[in-house]
């Protein structure tokens, strides 16, 4: 019962996403995440931490994307460059998260296309990027090398590292100075173990973000919510192997029965609310970056965070 703030001694470490021209990249903005020494949305008046950020998820092959999104975006989702630009300027996202879904195709070996997509998205938006590379362990090495290389200098967040499968992501991060998105399956000890493995291979703590894996509402969200609270509590108690900012994405939000089978007239609203409820709750549990796929969820989350946040805004000293 002592898991509360008064006796805490730890602090969430910092991770920087994106690099502006002055920092050696081409982004128009970069974010420094972390720095909290209290529970989420508490203690923000004391100047610590940063407002949670909203990442919008796009992909390079919309065949593997929710029809709820692609029917809303229409042709736009066929052009990752344009899509990234619209996500920044119209939807108002803080970060773009690019999934290289093209690598899901059976026998994918067109590795040079990865470089092309990366270049396009980097030119389409000035926002920091999270890049989800390969979906197939056999091609990890080729895919991540190209992701890393194409984004050199941009301080990407590269994903996804898992306990049995982290070497290529880590190698790309080390070779081209990016950060690693470390995902563990809703388990605090596995999250810690992965961070230790990454450290042993040379990735520094300030280049790791924890993805505790997020089951959406009604589909294991309670486990994810609690594991986030536990990671945050452990970090505040001084466990430095867990003191990294978290990033979460309830990616199943648009594919669960409640959303998929909703009345077509209400489907879009339900999709947005389902994402909004899971994402806001994730931030309340301690997530620094929440990722969503429906364009209309972005402004909702942004306003909610502004309403709740009494601390510094990004860029403020």
């Amino acid at each position: 019962m002592s898991e509360n703030s008064p006796d805490s001694s730890g602090k969430i470490g910092y991770v920087v996403l994106g690099a502006t021209k002055a920092e050696g990249g081409t982004r128009t903005v970069s974010f420094r995440l972390g720095g909290e020494s209290d529970l989420p949305f508490i203690g923000m008046n004391t100047g610590q931490g940063s407002i949670p950020l909203v990442a919008f998820e796009i992909c390079d092959d919309p065949e593997y994307w929710s029809p709820i999104v692609t029917s809303y975006t229409g042709d736009l989702s066929n052009d990752a460059r344009e899509w990234a630009g619209v996500a920044e300027k119209q939807y108002g996202a803080d970060i773009i998260r690019l999934y290289l879904t093209s690598t899901k195709r059976r026998g994918f070996d067109n590795f040079s296309s990865i470089t092309t997509v990366m270049e396009e998205v980097l030119s389409g938006t000035g926002l920091p990027l999270v890049v989800e590379g390969s979906n197939e362990p056999a091609i990890d090495s080729d895919v991540f090398q190209r992701c890393g290389e194409a984004g050199e200098g941009e301080r990407l967040l590269l994903g996804t590292a898992e306990a049995g499968r982290y070497r290529s992501v880590a190698a790309a991060a080390l070779a081209y100075h990016h950060s690693v998105l470390a995902q563990s399956p809703i388990d605090i000890n596995l999250a810690k173990q992965l961070n230790i493995l990454l450290r042993e291979i040379g990735v520094k703590a300030d280049h790791i973000m924890i993805d505790p894996y997020t089951g959406t509402l009604g589909y294991g969200f309670e486990y994810s919510y609690s594991v986030m609270e536990r990671i945050r509590s452990a970090a505040l108690k001084g466990d430095t192997d867990l003191a990294m900012p978290m990033i979460t994405s309830a990616t199943d939000s648009l594919s669960v029965k409640e959303v998929r089978e909703a009345d077509p007239a209400a489907l879009e609203d339900i999709a947005v609310e389902w994402e909004f409820y899971a994402a806001l709750s994730s931030a309340i549990a301690g997530s620094s970056v929440v990722c969503v796929r429906h364009p209309k969820t972005v402004p909702l989350l942004k306003s909610a965070f502004r309403e709740l946040w009494a601390g510094k805004m990004p860029g403020e000293a």
Binding site: S141, G148, A171, A172, A175
Partner: peptide, 12 residues
């Protein structure tokens, strides 16, 4: 070299 180093870390 960066590519070679990558392959070393990555285990290939």
């Amino acid at each position: 070299l960066r590519k070679l180093g990558y392959s070393l870390v990555d285990g290939s």
